[in-house]
Structure formats: structure tokens, C-alpha cells
């Protein structure tokens, strides 16, 4: 276990490191995390950046800019909440979006936040049909952070392969912990039973036990094949299905009933097919 913790801590450190390293990159989300003000500026930078990249209409860009500026006036508290929940993302609350939604850049954080809302609070939020955003396409940079996309998958891939020795340790730890847990559970159970005034008689000698103490189901060393053959043996002793005349008659009647129901079914089916125009050989 300790090993695992260490590992996690290591990971965290790594992340921090990489975050720091990437700060120099003009990466929007990282900066958002770092500093609110910077974020605002960034958004503006981004809009202008976009303008260069995309063949979008002038007025849209303007609208964007305006939106971007409006964002500045947002109360910050809510944003911080989102930050706490996800250190890589900044959410904006849905309630306040109204106009803000129109800002294309902040779509992703919005979504995140919204999920928190629906999942955690489970409350219904007044539904608003937002007008389609009229700005150009949203640009995702190739991204040097490891929380999303290709880099995340690569990191996950590498982290899940620490080498045989480490894996062995993890598993050993898990099994020890698991066994302890089971042991504890059993002790508790026994204690509970003992409280009821019953003494649990434990007898460990002799034949290996083949029955689960709780459910009484046969487990372990009885091979399925043996069990099956025993079952079939039992069956043989039963009276055959056509021993009594009553049984025969019943079977016959059942058969006729089955045929009749099949007939009815077929007729229904054909009617359906015909209605759908599919019962035609051409």
C-alpha cells in the first residue's frame, strides 16, 4: 500500500512539474488555473488569435470580443468553486451564462461545471435554449497537459506498466489487505453469532470441507462433471414422462396447443408482413 501512496505522490509531483514546465506555453487552461487575471487576458488573446486563423466574419469576432470583455465582469466566486473540483478546468455556472454561453471559448469549462450541477445537486436548472453561437470554429491546441487527450492516454499507458517487480508487489499488497479484510469480516460475524448465545463449533480436522458455511452450497473439490453425473443419476429414478396414460394425453394436448399457438402466431406475423408490404415474393 505504502508503495502505492508513494507512487501517487510521485505522480502528483510529476504533474506539478510538467505544469510548471508548460506554463511557458501559451496554453489557455493552464493559465486559467494559475491566475484569474491572466485568464481574462488570455481569452482576449485567443479571440484575436482565432481571428487570424479562421476565415470568420468580422462582426462575429467583434461580438466575441465583447463577450470576452463581459466575462471579466463575472463574479469570481463561482469560478473558484469549479477550480477546486477540477484543478485543470475552470467552470462557469450555468445560471449566469445567459449571454455568456455565446462565448465560444469557454464551452468546455461550462460543460464540466454543468455536470457537477446535474450530478451532485441533482437540481433542475431552468432550461434555456441557447442560440447557436455564430463564431467560427473553436480551436483546441495540441495540448501539452496530461489531463486530456493524447498525452493523457500515453501517460496512462506508461503508468500502468511499471515493470514486473512493482506489479508483483502491488498484487501481494492487495491480496494481503484483502485477506485481512475477509478475516476481519469473519471475526465480526463470529462475534455476532456468539453474542446471540450460540457457540460456534469449529472443527478443522478430517475431510476437507466442500460446503460453503454460509449458503450450504457445495463448492471446491467436487468436480462439475461428477456433480452433473450425480444429477443425471437422480433423474433416472424419476418416472418417465410417458409412464401413465394421463401423462401421455397431457403431452399430446400440450403439443396440439403449442401447434395451435404457433399457427396463430404465424397468421399474425403474415398479417404484419403484409401490412408492411413485405410478404411479396417480388
Amino acid at each position: 500500500m505504502g508503495n502505492l501512496k508513494e507512487k501517487l505522490e510521485e505522480e502528483k509531483k510529476k504533474k506539478k512539474k510538467s505544469e510548471k514546465a508548460k506554463k511557458t506555453n501559451a496554453e489557455l487552461f493552464q493559465k486559467k488555473v494559475m491566475l484569474k487575471k491572466e485568464e481574462k487576458q488570455n481569452e482576449n488573446i485567443k479571440t484575436t488569435g482565432k481571428k487570424k486563423r479562421r476565415r470568420e466574419k468580422e462582426n462575429n469576432v467583434n461580438a466575441d470580443k465583447v463577450e470576452g470583455e463581459k466575462n471579466k465582469n463575472k463574479p469570481r466566486k463561482k469560478k473558484r468553486k469549479g477550480e477546486e473540483k477540477n484543478n485543470a478546468l475552470v467552470g462557469k455556472s450555468v445560471q449566469q451564462d445567459g449571454y455568456e454561453e455565446q462565448n465560444g471559448k469557454s464551452k468546455k469549462p461550462n460543460r464540466k461545471k454543468k455536470e457537477h450541477h446535474t450530478l451532485k445537486k441533482g437540481e433542475t436548472i431552468p432550461e434555456k435554449i441557447e442560440e447557436a453561437v455564430e463564431d467560427g470554429a473553436y480551436y483546441i491546441s495540441s495540448g501539452e497537459d496530461c489531463s486530456k487527450g493524447m498525452r493523457k492516454w500515453l501517460t496512462e499507458y506508461r503508468q500502468s506498466r511499471p515493470g514486473l517487480k512493482v506489479l508483483q508487489q502491488w498484487i501481494d499488497q492487495f491480496i494481503t489487505a484483502h485477506e485481512e479484510k475477509l478475516e476481519q469480516e469473519r471475526n465480526e460475524r463470529e462475534a455476532r453469532v456468539a453474542e446471540d448465545g450460540w457457540t460456534v463449533v469449529v472443527h478443522h480436522k478430517g475431510r476437507k470441507k466442500t460446503t460453503d458455511s454460509q449458503s450450504g452450497i457445495t463448492v471446491g473439490s467436487v468436480a462439475p462433471a461428477v456433480a452433473e453425473s450425480q444429477l443425471t443419476k437422480k433423474k433416472h429414478k424419476e418416472i418417465g414422462p410417458d409412464f401413465y396414460r394421463v401423462q401421455k394425453r397431457e403431452a399430446q394436448r400440450n403439443e396440439i396447443l403449442a401447434i395451435q399457438s404457433k399457427f396463430e402466431q404465424d397468421r399474425k406475423r403474415i398479417q404484419q408482413l403484409r401490412a408492411a408490404g413485405k410478404f411479396q415474393p417480388y
Binding site: 470554429a137 495540441s142 495540448g143 493524447m150
Partner: peptide, 8 residues
């Protein structure tokens, strides 16, 4: 086109 991005 609503989103576009570069390759990692």
C-alpha cells in the same frame, strides 16, 4: 465546423 485542433 465547430472545433478544430492540431495533432499531438
Amino acid at each position: 465546423l465547430v472545433v478544430h485542433g492540431n495533432a499531438s
